[in-house]
Simulated assay, not measured.
Amino acid sequence: MKKIPETMKALVAYGPGEYKLVTDFPTPDCGPDDIIIKTEGCGICAGDLKCQLGAARFWGDDIQPAYVEPPFIPGHEFLGTVVDKGENVTEYEIGDRLTADQIVPCGECEYCRTGRYWLCEPHNVFGFKNFLNGGMAEYVRYPKTAVLHRVPKGMPLLDALLVEPYGCSKHAVDRAEITNEDFVVISGAGSLGLGMIAYARMKNPAKLVALDILPERLEKAAEFGADVVMNPKGTDVAQKVLEMTGGYGCDVYIEATGHPSSVLQGLKMIRKQGRFIEFSVFAGETSADWSIIGDGKELELRGSQLSPYCFPFVIEHIMNGDLKTAGVVSKTFPLDEWEAAFDCATGKYGDFKIAITF
């Protein structure tokens, strides 16, 4: 076995906007219950961007405490090949190709003990803590309680990079409990929205509508299975949905943009007793007339976070072609070009998913 170097190249976050490429960061040690992977690639999430820009959700403010613990290596959408393992690790071998749920559950809290590990009370996620570094580095440590999954060696890297985000997409759609009688609207056709559209198509809803302000995203949404695509910039999408449903509104609205206007248009177009699924991470607060949820429409408002129990399904159905992936990973960059990668990941150039590869 090739000797693992003592230091590695890594992107390190020291503070809001203070991200630096370090060429001699210590390679993670392998404890008796740990696994070390050599990273193949790591996708850039909207959460990574908002963290880098200093969003209060991560760094704290007068209302909420800081979640991050710097210095840390960002990235939670990653995979790699096992190059070292501890003496107590028996399920995996050197050379296995692995990915992991982004959360590393404690295994001891009430949520973990009742099977709801993705809600783990300590809620430690790869790429935000200095003791749980992420995938924007040459090597990553999987600790004992990481939720690991084998990735087929025949799965192309650009597909494998979508396993984690598509897992999140699947969970959001599962939260919506879509039936074949539902009129479904998915707001946001970025990489996660596209994963939702691809999976929602498998549910065969009565109508599947995708919304986005970028024409190239709407084109991809139609390719991935949306029956109707609309751009809120040039269309009163809430009024259109009301017209399409005889004035009642959509049964399901999935919010996947992280923009306040998407929340407001969703509350306007959803029918009474509709299911509103909030998925996004927001950069700031959103204000709405909260009475719409109760006195106005008696809505079911459901959150969605992470990707519990989703990876095996996603891996299987990416491999068999049921979940479309073509073109979702728009560009890849080496770690040295992380600033250009983060810039493209904003979507301002029309890109979907951007990834760093090694």
Rank of each mutant, 00 (worst) to 15 (best):
I4V: 14
P5S: 08
E6P: 01
M8K: 10
G15K: 04
L21N: 05
V22F: 03
V22Q: 03
D24G: 13
F25W: 12
P26R: 13
D29K: 15
I35C: 02
I37R: 11
G41Q: 05
C42L: 02
C51T: 11
C51I: 10
F58Q: 03
A66D: 09
E77G: 01
L79F: 13
L79A: 13
N88H: 09
N88L: 11
E91N: 13
E93S: 10
E93H: 11
E93V: 09
A100E: 08
I103A: 13
P105W: 06
E121F: 00
H123I: 03
N124V: 06
F128L: 13
N130L: 10
K144Q: 14
T145D: 15
V147R: 13
V147H: 06
H149A: 12
H149L: 07
R150C: 08
G154Y: 12
L162R: 05
V163M: 06
S169Y: 12
D182Y: 04
I186Y: 01
G188C: 09
G190D: 07
L192V: 14
M196R: 05
Y199T: 03
V209M: 08
A221L: 03
D227W: 06
D227V: 09
D227Y: 02
D227Q: 04
D236V: 00
V237L: 12
V237Y: 10
V241L: 03
V241G: 05
V241F: 05
L242K: 01
E243V: 00
G246F: 12
E255R: 03
Q265D: 00
V281S: 13
V281I: 14
W290H: 14
G294P: 00
D295W: 13
S304N: 02
Q305P: 09
F313P: 04
S330A: 06
L335Q: 02
A341K: 00
F342N: 01
T346V: 06
D351Q: 15
